[in-house]
């Protein structure tokens, strides 16, 4: 039984993440009084990119060529090692909080290197900004997840969602602060407003897009897909660590559909939230971002002191 569950778990993130992006885009388009592309447009985009020829800069080294594969792989591994719709993998040694965070960092590291590799003016500053934001986000991200972790007495993400589900309402109170911290970190890590504009190609403001400017064809597809995966992963983390209800806690296959449906509902809610947020606030000036990130860190520390 568990093999089936395991396969679902493994494939879920790459399979659903473009859809998630599509949903967000659709909602944003609605906010902007546009019809917008269909929610399955990202799948078509990926398919198209995979079947296009590729141009690679003569300055690029193997780092540039290998990075997309590595980045995509890390997101897949992470996707397999976080709670999605079930908590049964709590003995899974991959589900460790620090491993997840540092795997994310591994991806970011290579993405930034790839951005510098071609020697364009954009790639370099994109990497610089990306690493700045990533470095400052790490504390807030780690500590915001540590708040439920300490309550659960485990840093295994499956175990955390299992434990949080059984919390009383009052024990849950500090979690709200942690959630706020997490959301700030999430927006920073996934390159969303107010940190980055995922749809921009305006040279003064872009971060993520600046790094991947030189990619085309299959590698661009991998990068885009990895970004979608990452976004989905964070949504899933937010949904399952802070609202872990309704996850299946047994190996019975019958529980799975219900859990999946609930999971999709939560992800949808998060997507709507992100889309609404992106449509209602503006992007911050770059040097205002650190304040926000430190706020995230401080919030999680306060939450932590309330928890233990």
């Amino acid at each position: 039984m568990s093999i089936i569950i395991w396969t679902i778990q493994l494939a879920l993130v790459p399979a659903v993440s473009p859809l998630c992006i599509g949903v967000v885009r659709k909602i944003k388009a609605r906010f902007q009084n546009r019809v917008g592309a269909g929610i399955f447009q990202p799948y078509r985009d990926l398919w198209k990119l995979f079947h296009k020829d590729e141009v690679i800069s003569e300055d690029a080294s193997w780092i540039f060529k290998c990075a997309p594969y590595l980045i995509f792989s890390t997101t897949v591994i992470i996707g397999a090692s976080i709670p999605l719709f079930t908590t049964i993998f709590s003995i899974n040694v991959l589900g460790d909080l620090l491993v997840v965070i540092y795997l994310i960092a591994l991806g970011t590291f290579f993405l930034a290197l790839a951005g510098m590799d071609v020697g364009s003016a954009f790639g370099g500053f994109g990497s610089s900004r990306e690493m700045t934001v990533a470095a400052l986000t790490e504390g807030g991200l780690m500590f915001s997840i540590l708040v439920p972790a300490f309550s659960a007495h485990s840093t295994n993400l499956f175990a955390i969602s299992g434990a949080v589900a059984s919390f009383s309402f009052f024990a849950f109170a500090p979690m709200i602060l942690a959630l706020a911290a997490f959301i700030i970190a999430m927006l920073a890590e996934t390159g969303r407003f107010p940190f980055d504009n995922p749809a921009t190609h305006l040279e003064l403001t872009m971060i993520h897009e600046a790094m991947v400017l030189e990619y085309s064809g299959k590698r661009l597809a991998l990068i885009e897909w990895a970004a979608a995966n990452k976004f989905f992963i964070f949504l899933a983390l937010g949904a399952n660590l802070f609202f872990p209800w309704g996850m299946s806690s047994s190996e019975r296959l019958g529980d799975v559909p219900l859990a999946l449906i609930l999971f999709f509902a939560k992800i949808l809610a998060f997507s709507v939230f992100v889309a609404v947020l992106e449509s209602t606030i503006v992007k911050f000036r770059f040097f205002r971002l650190p304040d926000l990130l430190f706020t995230s860190f401080i919030l999680s520390i306060i939450a932590m002191s309330l928890t233990i």
Partner: peptide, 13 residues
């Protein structure tokens, strides 16, 4: 998926 696609070497934009 993309075994038939060509890769061109070009200048950085």
């Amino acid at each position: 998926v993309s075994r038939n696609r060509k890769t061109k070497i070009g200048r950085t934009w």
